[in-house]
Design a protein around this nucleic acid. Structure first.
Length: 810
RNA sequence: GCGCGGGUGAUGGAAUCGGUAGACAUGAGAGACUUAAAAUCUCUUGGCCGCAAGGUCGUGCGGGUUCAAGUCCCGCCCCGCGCACCA
């Protein structure tokens, strides 16, 4: 008998698939399309890791499943190539990033092909290819035209090691997401995308997305919408006002002081003569104190009194104005009304500085805790609003303020604009030319792409400019508007810009006339299944943002780029900890394949480990078990092929388990429950092993095995293809329609009825499938073990669940 | 602190609609084959009592609803992830 040898059959079929271009697809409006993609990888020098193997096993299983259903399946691949590792390598070695990138891509591609993934390589794209980033730049100019890209001087996160600015999303707990070093704040002129204009529409679409709840929640929190009010406090003995933002205008009568952020424009000017020094000192210290400290602080409140007072517009009371760094300048108006009786932070501050505390909401009597109460209740000490419930008062007080012209309701979002400037070489140049007369001018479409020049030294000089600034030939150019000498922008685009539209480019990857043909994109997109385990907010929010803009521009007829998001877990090392080189516990998927397990075992194993959304620990024992399973499938087929197919056994049993399995695998697939689909295939195989001892009958067993090859193909395509051929099929598995089941063939002649007494299992009944209720109940009661519990008591009730169970209540 | 997940055998997990808890796999044990081992095949495998039939307990803890609860409700505990002085 031929032995199962993955290292022989897998490369063979990979070659055949490639030669026959079986995965190359063209748009065809007559055919139902399915677009499935993983989040494209950054091709690092280290090559493919288990995370890639996991992601693309999911992608490929889905792709093959739908192809077997006759659908037009787009499964593309590309490379997210801009980024710091290639640049840092270039700085160290002088090798151009493009050269290293090309090598890494080649390596990745080879590895992916060895996985047997069914990718349409004719659509391969690479974000650092000028033919690609030309259109990234074009999109930038379109956003610029629409006022959605703008430049602003601002304090920004700055990574002192990578010498670059970082977006909020790239700062993780005060550290750089790439190199882990502590970040600082630095004031620079930076480019932004005005994503905040889209806060509301990005938010309203979230509930309708077929995405995991945790991602939707993360995005909702990130956008951070709050309904509240802006309220004006007149500054005492002055015409000036301070506008504060509050989500609790109902507590206005309890506002006993006002707090400004240290960065607030009024902070300094409100300091009275005798407080000036103290205020100055506090502001300087607070601004210098890194935000990290402010975040990691023990939350000990600090602040300084300005010496000035404001008038509470509701109570008319004179309240002191303080400056404190617990108020953030970037949110709301950078100023708050402090209500210490009903806000924890204000309470702590008031306690520390002995500021007055006035309760304006009645605490429930069962709340015996001393101090601050932030719940709801009737108002007190609130003049005409006394007795009004706090929730009603929120609206009524704002309405009253509006009448007086001292306030209005206001919605605020936590989300900030997207910072896109990077002071690095290895990114798409921002297509802007700075002209003394015309300011920032977009590079016209016919002059795109602005190609990255090849330079000598890739290292940034630490002056806040990219290494491009030193390429004077490139920097010095002429203004597209007036033709006079002008300078190119030397910042490059955040890599997230490049990855915000690649899912559209896949639909029309070779288009040299436009970023994409809307016809192609409207056929293939949005993506039906998008698979990944990273970027809960950043990428997945930016992609949505750009697609909303494209929709507005008429470039797509949909707003949301991704229908179903599959967010899978991590594969950890065997000891349950994260894989890491330093711990030496890294599993290399290529090693697993080359050890002899093969790609099929690897792919089947990662999907069998557990539900895809869960983290899992690698188990070398378990993958051996999966290999054993595939081997059993192999042996079963070989034995049939070599047998004389005489038969003495139970054809009905074979057919029944076959149809049952088709149904289980299909239904499990539809809910993306791969681990149970694979276990159903294992049971099927185990069952056939038991049935084969009676011998093989040609027709029934041939079909049973063909079905097995069909069902196993999304997981173990090579094994499936090889055995399919050996079983006599002339065509490829993906061209054979997915088997369908017949419910009537699944039903057994007999069914098992569970018999309970008072809800406890006492007997099982094997009865004919069409036996009536009365007969079943009678049989149940007659059971010896049932009698032992019922005795001569009369059953109070007998519950019958058709074909399932009888419960006798005594 | 807030939000979102989750807690089931020795282990990964299954139980899709409230109806046999523990599928499948790993590990462990026994047997067959073998000079032997590996591989392969077969069987057993939640705890406790029992020769067995069977009983009894059992899905983080405490209550509840129901003929029936891993599943629904209330209150707690623990773990993971995300956000975190956002007024």
């Amino acid at each position: 008998m031929k032995r199962y040898n993955p290292s022989e059959i897998e490369p063979k079929w990979q070659q055949i698939w490639e030669d026959q271009k079986v995965n190359v697809v063209v748009a065809n409006p007559e055919k139902q399309k399915i677009y499935v993609s993983g989040m494209f990888p950054y091709p690092s020098g280290a090559g493919m890791h288990t995370g890639h193997a996991f992601s693309y096993s999911i992608v490929d299983a889905i792709a093959r499943f739908h192809r077997q259903h006759g659908r037009n399946v787009l499964n593309p691949m590309g490379w997210d190539t801009f980024g710091l590792p290639a640049e840092n390598y270039a700085i160290k070695t002088g090798t151009a990033p493009a050269v290293v990138t090309a090598q890494n891509i080649e390596n990745f591609k080879k590895q992916f092909k060895r996985m047997g993934v069914s990718i349409d390589w004719s659509r391969e794209l690479n974000t650092s290819d000028p033919e690609y980033y030309r259109w990234t730049q074009w999109i930038f100019t379109k956003l610029f035209e629409r006022g959605l890209a703008y430049q602003k001087e601002s304090m920004q996160w700055w990574c002192p090691v990578d010498k670059t600015v970082l977006a909020n999303e790239q700062v993780e707990g005060g550290h750089c997401w790439r190199c882990g070093s502590e970040v600082e704040k630095k004031s620079m002129k930076q480019w932004f995308f005005r994503i905040t204009n889209y806060a509301e529409q990005l938010l309203v679409e979230i509930p309708d997305l077929d995405w995991p709840q945790k991602i939707k929640t993360a995005q909702t929190n990130w956008i951070g919408k709050s309904q509240g009010a802006e309220i004006e406090f007149k500054i005492n003995e002055s015409e000036d006002i301070i506008t504060v933002f509050s989500t609790r205008p109902d507590t206005l009568f309890g506002a006993t002081f006002v707090v400004l952020a240290p960065e607030h424009p009024l902070s300094k000017q409100l300091a009275t003569k005798d407080m000036l020094d103290a205020v100055d000192e506090y502001i300087t210290k607070a601004v210098k104190k890194s935000e990290i400290e402010r975040m990691n602080d023990t939350r000990e409140k600090t602040g300084v009194f300005t010496g000035s007072y404001a008038i509470n517009p509701a109570s008319g009371q004179k309240v002191p104005i303080w400056i404190a760094d617990y108020v953030l300048s970037g949110y709301g108006t950078g100023a708050i009304m402090a209500v210490p009786a009903h806000d924890e932070r204000d309470f702590a501050f008031a306690e520390k500085y002995n500021l007055p505390i006035i309760e304006v909401i009645e605490k429930p009597t069962d709340d015996t805790e001393a101090g601050m109460y932030h719940g709801e209740g009737p108002l007190i000490n609130s003049d005409r609003f006394d007795g009004t419930s706090s929730s009603d008062a929120r609206e009524e007080i704002v309405a009253w303020l509006e009448e007086q012209g001292t306030g209005h309701s206001q919605i605020t979002y936590k989300m900030r604009d997207w910072l896109i400037s990077r002071q690095r070489y290895w990114g798409a140049p921002i297509p802007i030319i700075h002209c003394d007369e015309h300011g920032a001018v977009a590079v016209p479409e016919d002059q795109l792409p602005v190609v990255l020049p090849v330079i000598e030294d890739y290292a940034p000089k630490g002056d806040g400019l990219s290494a491009l600034a030193a390429a004077s030939d490139w920097v010095n150019t002429t203004c597209p508007t007036c033709g006079r000498p002008a300078k190119r922008e030397t910042d490059t685009l955040d890599g997230y810009a490049c990855s915000s539209w690649y899912l559209l480019r896949y639909a029309d990857p070779k288009n040299a006339e436009q970023a994409w043909d809307p016809k192609a994109v409207n056929y293939w997109n949005p993506v039906d299944y998008y698979v990944g385990g990273d970027h809960a907010v950043a990428h997945l929010l930016y992609v949505r943002f750009w697609t909303h803009v494209f929709n507005e521009m008429g470039l797509t007829d949909f707003k949301e780029p991704v229908k179903k998001l599959i967010y899978h877990g991590y594969i950890n090392a065997e000891d349950g900890t994260k894989m890491s080189k330093s711990k030496g516990n890294v599993i290399d998927p290529l090693d697993i394949i080359n050890q002899g397990y093969g790609a099929d075992s690897l792919r089947t194993y990662v999907l069998f480990m557990g539900p895809i959304e869960l983290d899992a620990a690698w188990s070398s024992k378990s993958i051996a078990g999966v290999y054993r399973f595939l081997n059993r499938v192999w042996v079963l087929a070989q034995e049939y092929i070599e047998s004389d197919k005489s038969f003495m056994g139970n054809d009905t049993a074979v057919t029944r388990i076959q149809h049952k399995t088709i149904r289980r695998v299909t239904e499990d697939f539809n809910r993306l429950s791969f681990n149970t689909a694979i276990s159903a295939l294992m049971e099927y195989t185990n069952e056939l092993y038991k049935l084969k001892v009676d011998g093989f009958s040609t027709e029934v067993w041939g079909e049973a095995l063909n079905v097995l090859m069909q069902l196993i193909a999304p997981f173990a395509p090579h094994l499936s293809e090889e055995l399919n051929r050996e079983l006599g099929s002339e065509i490829l598995v993906q061209d054979i329609p997915w088997p369908i089941w017949d419910d009537s063939l699944i039903i057994d002649e007999t069914i098992t009825i569970i018999v309970q007494v008072n809800g406890k299992l006492r007997a099982k009944l094997e009865v004919a499938k069409d036996l009536g209720e009365a007969e079943i109940k009678a049989l149940a009661l007659a059971e010896e073990n049932v009698q032992a519990f019922v005795g001569n008591k009369k059953p109070a009730k007998v519950i019958y669940v058709p074909s399932r169970l009888v419960n006798i209540v005594v």
